[in-house]
């Protein structure tokens, strides 16, 4: 008797919101080699998008080029919230610190006694997703650690992070200083690619945890 192999169920659609921060008249930080943060976040988003697309994720992005007029942080949050994203990544870069900073909103989760139908203010929209955001940040942190990239998990009050309703983290790339004192700048393509791979691996692992047991069968 021939056994028919069970048909492999397609993975549920997982939407990732990517926000390369700054853009247009807002250059962000001035990085070494006359590079602007807005250009680096865009280049990094392109790398990450390619890796995530090959892993079967659907992407929603706030920009694929440097627009003349960029979206405000509120408009970026609206795009993410209307797109019903499963995870939101806000991408930044800096020339201070070491490794990658994975930042979660400093808002506190709403009080359970308030009930499920309490109106959530726009400035605290992220509060209901804080536990999932912390879990996502931890998953990305672990993946970066496995890739031997220093990582710091922290909390901050930041727009549009505070206005997002999806599990959300801000990822800030900073230079990598090895224990020997060798410094890799944020502009290094290999360094960026390693970070992008680690984030893609973390999201793949995170997606497998988020899928209900029934959906995988």
């Amino acid at each position: 008797m021939n056994r028919v192999a069970p048909a492999q169920q397609p993975l549920p659609r997982t939407v990732i919101f990517l926000d390369p921060a700054h853009g247009g008249p807002d250059p962000g930080a001035h990085l070494p080699n006359n590079l602007l943060e807005k250009d680096l976040t865009l280049a990094f988003a392109t790398r990450l998008r390619a890796l995530l697309a090959s892993s079967g994720f659907t992407m929603v992005s706030t920009r694929d080029a440097d627009p003349t007029v960029s979206f405000t942080t509120d408009q970026r949050a609206e795009i993410a919230n209307h797109g019903h994203s499963n995870a939101c990544l806000v991408l930044h870069a800096t020339s201070s610190g070491n490794g990658v900073h994975v930042i979660t909103s400093s808002l506190t989760p709403p009080n359970e006694l308030d009930g499920p139908h309490t109106t959530v203010p726009w400035n605290a929209a992220q509060s209901a997703s804080i536990p999932q955001s912390l879990s996502l940040a931890n998953e990305i942190g672990l993946s970066l650690q496995r890739a031997k990239i220093p990582v710091i998990l922290s909390r901050s009050s930041l727009r549009p992070l505070d206005n997002l309703t999806c599990p959300a983290v801000a990822i800030e790339i900073s230079p990598f200083t090895s224990p020997d004192g060798d410094r890799t700048p944020v502009t290094d393509a290999t360094y960026q690619q390693n970070i992008a791979k680690a984030i893609a691996a973390a999201l793949t692992s995170w997606r497998s945890r988020q899928i209900p047991v029934g959906a995988a069968k």
């Binding site: 940040a137 672990l142 990582v151 727009r159």
Partner: peptide
């Protein structure tokens, strides 16, 4: 809006003890 493009300065911050020592990701 921000201090230098990032940290929110429109937010009213609670005055608390801000001692911090970030913990590494746990597996």
């Amino acid at each position: 809006d921000t201090l230098a493009g990032h940290a929110d300065l429109l937010h009213t911050y609670p005055a608390t003890d801000t001692t911090a020592k970030p913990i590494p990701p746990s597996g």
